[in-house]
């Protein structure tokens, strides 16, 4: 009998988002958190950990890739590149 799979998200610093760093096996959530601490934060990578059962994640299918993502390719007007940047405004 093997332990179920969990996906691990680590927040590297305060103010940043949790990011997916990998997966691991654990019997339950408590153990998954501890295993994540040992596997993914041993070199000071994070300040906060989330673990999510891998079965709870719904993923887009590779077969749907064209329907999902291709239509965005030729719609450059969705990018904010058609504005004049006001003089003196930085960091836009």
């Amino acid at each position: 009998m093997s332990w179920p799979l969990w996906e691990v998200f680590v927040r590297p610093r305060r103010g940043l988002n949790h990011q997916h760093v990998g997966s691991l096996h654990a019997a339950d959530a408590e153990q998954a958190l501890r295993n994540a601490r040992d596997l993914y934060t041993r070199r000071e990578e994070g300040v906060s950990i989330w673990v999510v059962p891998a079965t709870a994640i719904s993923a887009s299918s590779p077969e749907e890739r064209d329907a999902f993502f291709a239509p965005a390719a030729d719609k450059i007007y969705r990018h904010p590149t058609f504005y004049e940047v006001p003089e003196g405004a930085e960091h836009i």
């Binding site: 093997s2 332990w3 691991l24 096996h25 654990a26 501890r34 295993n35 040992d38 596997l39 041993r42």
Partner: peptide
């Protein structure tokens, strides 16, 4: 018994 525990014990 599991890879994850292996790493924990080594740590």
């Amino acid at each position: 018994p599991e890879l994850e525990e292996d790493v924990a014990l080594a740590n």
